[in-house]
């Protein structure tokens, strides 16, 4: 699918041309309801999120920390299925052109059937797909079928990945590459890991794809540090916590908007890397 312009690619090209760090916002679809998620997505887009990842809830989220585990439980309880998430994408498209990535464990996709899934997701207006527990080695059919429907396939790179693997992951990815900042599950953390800049540099060495860094990103200080290193920061558990804490759906939508605006602000004004104390493992102001 080289050369085909997708919403994701356009978004990253725009960010690159103005030299700004992008914000990728993750929320679990259907938490607490699909209606609520529609509001949340529009609020996030309005506040400046460059890409939105819609988490498809799964009964056994083994790569997720407690925050997203609880969100998955709430979403499943509200009756959320992969088909309903795809319907939601369709409804979002009636009022927003924000790039949308479906973020799922592999089994729900496999059970729907790769062809049926890819066709439905593309028709609804999804732009890309990331399957947490699918690595390049097992993804041949998946990549072929998704590419045929012009869906970007985003794969994860990790701190344990060798340069050789990072190159393989990049070769299988389109749109962007999602780099996991540290070994562990999803969840907000105070400090970014010391070896993150080296990991990003290693990844840069093997690909020209935009690099989004996620896991443990929640504070403006994190975003400032990433400004000089990555193309985008992924914020997930911090947003999901806002949804969990808020007294109402409308309050949650407001809180999500504020969070993204603050992070976006930090990305625009960016503390220089020298000023950000991340490398000493402290909490940013």
């Amino acid at each position: 699918m080289v050369g085909i312009e997708t919403r994701i690619r356009s978004a990253f090209e725009a960010l690159r041309s103005c030299g700004e760090l992008g914000m990728v916002a993750y929320i679990t679809a259907g938490d607490p309801s699909v209606e609520a998620t529609l509001k949340f997505v529009l609020a996030l887009a309005e506040a400046g999120a460059d890409v939105i990842e819609l988490g498809v809830p799964f009964s056994d989220p083994l790569a997720d920390g407690p925050t997203i585990q609880r969100a998955s439980e709430r979403a499943l309880k509200s009756g959320t299925t992969l088909s309903r998430v795809i319907d939601l994408v369709h409804r979002i498209r009636l009022s927003s052109q924000v790039p949308l990535v479906l973020f799922s464990y592999y089994n729900p996709i496999l059970q729907m059937g790769l062809e049926k899934f890819a066709s439905a997701a593309a028709n609804a207006g999804a732009d890309g797909v990331l399957a947490t527990d699918l690595t390049p080695e097992e993804s041949e059919d998946y990549r072929r079928i998704l590419a045929a429907h012009h869906l970007d396939t985003i794969f994860l790179g990790a701190p344990t990945s060798t340069d050789e693997r990072l190159a393989k992951i990049a070769a299988c990815s389109s749109g962007f590459l999602y780099l996991i900042s540290r070994t562990g599950v999803t969840g907000a953390k105070d400090a970014l890991p010391d070896d993150l800049p080296a990991l990003i540099r290693r990844t840069r060495g093997v690909t020209k794809l935009p690099i989004a860094v996620g896991f443990g990103i929640s504070l403006p200080g994190h975003v400032s540090v990433l400004g000089g290193l990555a193309d985008a920061a992924v914020v997930g558990s911090a947003l999901v916590s806002e949804i969990e804490k808020a007294p109402s759906v409308d309050a949650a939508a407001l809180a999500l908007g504020e969070r993204i605006r603050a992070l976006k602000q930090a990305a625009r004004n960016g503390l220089s890397r020298r000023e950000a104390p991340m490398h000493r493992g402290e909490v940013a102001p």
């Binding site: 690595t135 794969f155 994860l156 344990t160 992951i169």
Partner: peptide, 9 residues
């Protein structure tokens, strides 16, 4: 082998 990338190596 269907695992998060962190576990592959």
């Amino acid at each position: 082998r269907y695992v998060p990338e962190t576990l592959m190596v």
